[in-house]
Design a protein around this nucleic acid. Structure first.
Lengths: 335, 335
DNA sequence: TTTTAATGTGGAATCGATTCCACATAGCTT
DNA sequence: AAGCTATGTGGAATCGATTCCACATTAAAA
């Protein structure tokens, strides 16, 4: 591999001068510049970025830790991050935990070893061990999707989205609303969306049937199973024996639920209305099209990258910006 | 940031010795090892990977160039690559072209600048300029999804998959089959899948209606529009005025086509049978579930990584392994 | 007891860039 | 003519690791 030294010798100048033409800095006469450029051209020389990093202490790499890339949310966020950082000559080093929570901490260390200039963490939890680790890392880091004390974050307004969505159901006359949630260790998806739902119901003084509030895991089949479970609970509390509406905390859960209901001959939205969260592409094309909440994931990625750059440039590491992105209700025929 | 020099001083040994305990190489007495480890522990020292790279000439990074990460195909492949390479202590540097073909070449240079040990290219085309560039790069590279002379590749057996799928339609009694393809500069998806279809039709001596062979772009709406176009061509050649079956080269195109047909009151599969390619998750849950071709994308990513490692270890850069992965027909109710 | 081998440690060069200085030359001001 | 300033170039240190080699010491073999 040809190095700056080779170029210097071939062009009969010093490495200093080659570096100058490379970086367009300092004084270089037109003659010399031409000569050096010619040699670079001929040899196809490409300077080593990490040798440069060693000197400049900047890798121009942002580490991205994510639970899986196989969801639209993640891939949109990554796209957003990529768009923003590539404008600054940065690249993404990918750290995919494949839903293995312990790996989050492992990858933090690994990214430190790689000396990334900053980290964006698409978070699924806010376990104390993780939060602790982040704080002692001393590398600019922005968390997406979850928030924690003393950590910069870009989050979605899950609480208000859930409230507004619930309100919309209520306005359409629904009172017997079932809820398919997920584990509350996921503060954003599990806890806040549920709290939004419950608070809005309470604000309208509507009793909720506890048996219709179920917990699923993050996949379509689980939505199917959970819907079956809900419909098996004949309404001991409610006057009706079945809900007239269902809110699922993700689109996939909603899709699973719809599938179960269709199989049972339940019509949507005539018999049961339903909505999800996430605005995944397919929701537009379902039959009926699914009402959902769009979180502008790509923007979230961009915004996180912007926040990260702010922090990276800041002399101080103090202060923790937290931005909460707004959402958009996408009302479709399923409601 | 604490360096190996600091550790050496604090532990009152040389950098050489610290390096030895770090890499578990050479002789180090138990006393000294303990002392050094203690200092490392106390300071939280993490060696700089790129300083190491400078010396060892190995970055332990694989660059992945892809057209978009927002398809299941890409994200599955990336997952597969990640699984395989992380076992060897490698990481992924992501280069997302966002469907901008020119950026493929740009990114090749950028990855060279980053001195990645190898590159995996999820390819959409085999333009001469690209192929040329790859060859002059002199970095181990494996292409996924497309193949070209002199370049290592992992491809899907698009041709035979298309033939077998077509055969299945024919066996079910279909002769008037429409085909929704894409541009043939995409050799794999555009050209081979179409050729497989045509050859199988020819093998059964079935005439194809040229007007029912249409070209779309890669999204759901395009599938919708193209289906509309096909159905607007009343059969001047065929004895029927409409096809009894449709093969779409991607699941998304199939979904779009289904949506159009449903809107027209066409029943699937009673009036028109349909199939796609890709086995995207949602196809299982569509109504009716969609017949499709599963290409084991994650395995493809793993295999590409394995091929890449073989090449990276090989002393020679000669020979170009090409592996063709097999496929699996997923027969569902839409056919 | 002398050789030889195994064990243990450090000095210094090296990887490929950047950057601080020192120094040289030329053209302008006073 | 002397002093400045702008321009142009290179030497050498530096970034943080690895690794070759030299050199001790100790233990085992002859």
């Amino acid at each position: 591999m040809v190095t700056i030294k080779n170029i210097a010798e071939m062009a009969k100048v010093s490495r200093t001068t080659v570096s100058r033409v490379l970086n367009n800095s300092g004084y270089v006469s037109e003659d010399v510049r031409k000569r050096v450029e010619k040699v670079i051209e001929e040899t196809g020389y490409i300077p080593s970025h990490y040798a440069k990093s060693l000197r400049t202490k900047k890798t121009k790499i942002v580490g991205v830790i994510l639970p899986t890339i196989q969801t639209e949310t993640s891939s949109r966020i990554v796209t957003g991050i990529g768009k923003e950082i590539s404008q600054h000559g940065y690249e993404i080093l990918l750290a995919n935990t494949n839903l293995n929570q312990e790996k989050e901490i492992e990858y933090l260390e690994l990214l430190k070893e790689r000396r990334v200039d900053g980290i964006i963490l698409i978070a699924t939890n806010t376990e104390p061990a993780l939060v602790e680790k982040i704080k002692e890392m001393n590398i600019p880091l922005v968390m997406i999707g979850q928030e924690a004390n003393g950590i910069m974050s870009v989050t979605f307004d899950d609480y208000h989205a859930a409230r507004e969505l619930t309100r919309t159901f209520i306005k359409k006359g629904h009172e017997d609303i079932a809820f398919i949630g997920v584990d509350e260790t996921d503060r954003a998806v599990g806890y806040r969306r549920k709290k939004g739902f419950l608070d809005e119901m309470a604000a309208h003084e509507i009793n909720v049937n506890e048996e219709w509030i179920q917990k699923a895991i993050f996949d379509i089949d689980s939505g199917y199973d959970t819907m079956e479970k809900i419909l098996s609970k004949t309404g001991a509390i409610s006057k009706r024996s079945a809900p007239t509406a269902v809110i699922a905390v993700t689109d996939r859960l909603a899709i699973g639920a719809i599938n179960y209901m269709k199989k049972q001959g339940i019509r949507i939205p005539e018999d049961v209305a339903i909505a999800g969260f996430g605005a995944s592409e397919i929701t537009r094309y379902l039959d009926p099209p699914l009402t959902t909440v769009d979180y502008h994931n790509e923007k979230a990625g961009e915004e996180a990258a912007r926040q990260l750059f702010n922090r990276m440039q800041a002399q101080t590491q103090e202060g923790t910006e937290k931005v909460v992105l707004n959402y958009r209700l996408v009302l479709r025929k399923s409601l």
